[in-house]
Simulated assay, not measured.
Amino acid sequence: MEKFKLFDAEQKFMDIVWELEPINSTQLTKICSKRLGWKKSTTYTIIRKLSERGIVKNEEATVTALVKQEQVQKYESEVLLEKSFDGSLPTFIATFLKDKKLSKREAEEIKKMIEEAIHE
Score class of each variant (00 low, 15 high):
residue 10 E to D: 13
residue 11 Q to C: 01
residue 11 Q to L: 13
residue 12 K to H: 01
residue 12 K to P: 00
residue 13 F to D: 04
residue 14 M to C: 09
residue 15 D to E: 15
residue 16 I to M: 03
residue 16 I to E: 02
residue 17 V to E: 06
residue 17 V to K: 06
residue 19 E to V: 03
residue 19 E to K: 15
residue 19 E to L: 14
residue 20 L to N: 10
residue 24 N to L: 01
residue 24 N to A: 02
residue 25 S to T: 15
residue 25 S to E: 13
residue 25 S to R: 15
residue 26 T to D: 11
residue 26 T to R: 13
residue 27 Q to T: 14
residue 27 Q to E: 11
residue 27 Q to H: 07
residue 28 L to A: 08
residue 28 L to S: 06
residue 29 T to C: 11
residue 30 K to E: 13
residue 31 I to L: 10
residue 33 S to P: 00
residue 34 K to A: 15
residue 34 K to F: 09
residue 35 R to V: 14
residue 35 R to T: 12
residue 36 L to A: 03
residue 38 W to I: 08
residue 40 K to A: 00
residue 41 S to L: 01
residue 41 S to D: 10
residue 42 T to E: 07
residue 42 T to V: 07
residue 42 T to Y: 03
residue 43 T to W: 07
residue 43 T to Q: 07
residue 44 Y to D: 06
residue 44 Y to V: 07
residue 45 T to E: 11
residue 45 T to V: 09
residue 46 I to M: 07
residue 46 I to V: 14
residue 47 I to F: 03
residue 47 I to K: 04
residue 49 K to S: 13
residue 49 K to I: 12
residue 49 K to N: 15
residue 49 K to H: 12
residue 51 S to C: 04
residue 51 S to G: 14
residue 52 E to W: 00
residue 53 R to E: 11
residue 53 R to L: 09
residue 53 R to M: 09
residue 56 V to I: 13
residue 56 V to H: 13
residue 57 K to Y: 06
residue 57 K to Q: 14
residue 57 K to D: 14
residue 57 K to G: 07
residue 58 N to C: 06
residue 58 N to G: 03
residue 59 E to V: 05
residue 60 E to Q: 13
residue 61 A to G: 00
residue 61 A to E: 09
residue 62 T to I: 15
residue 63 V to Y: 04
residue 63 V to T: 08
residue 64 T to C: 04
residue 66 L to K: 13
residue 66 L to W: 05
residue 66 L to V: 07
residue 67 V to W: 04
residue 67 V to P: 05
residue 67 V to R: 08
residue 68 K to N: 12
residue 68 K to T: 13
residue 69 Q to E: 15
residue 70 E to V: 14
residue 71 Q to P: 00
residue 71 Q to M: 12
residue 73 Q to F: 12
residue 74 K to D: 00
residue 74 K to V: 00
residue 75 Y to H: 15
residue 75 Y to N: 09
residue 76 E to S: 13
residue 77 S to W: 15
residue 77 S to Y: 14
residue 79 V to F: 04
residue 81 L to H: 01
residue 81 L to S: 00
residue 84 S to C: 10
residue 85 F to P: 02
residue 89 L to H: 02
residue 89 L to Q: 04
residue 91 T to D: 05
residue 92 F to S: 01
residue 92 F to W: 05
residue 93 I to W: 05
residue 93 I to C: 10
residue 94 A to F: 11
residue 94 A to K: 15
residue 95 T to S: 12
residue 97 L to Q: 08
residue 97 L to R: 10
residue 99 D to C: 12
residue 99 D to E: 15
residue 100 K to D: 02
residue 100 K to H: 08
residue 100 K to A: 01
residue 100 K to N: 04
residue 102 L to M: 14
residue 104 K to M: 01
residue 104 K to L: 04
residue 104 K to S: 04
residue 106 E to F: 06
residue 107 A to P: 02
residue 107 A to H: 05
residue 107 A to C: 03
residue 108 E to H: 01
residue 108 E to C: 00
residue 110 I to C: 01
residue 110 I to Y: 02
residue 114 I to V: 13
residue 114 I to W: 03
residue 115 E to Q: 10
residue 117 A to Q: 12
residue 117 A to D: 11
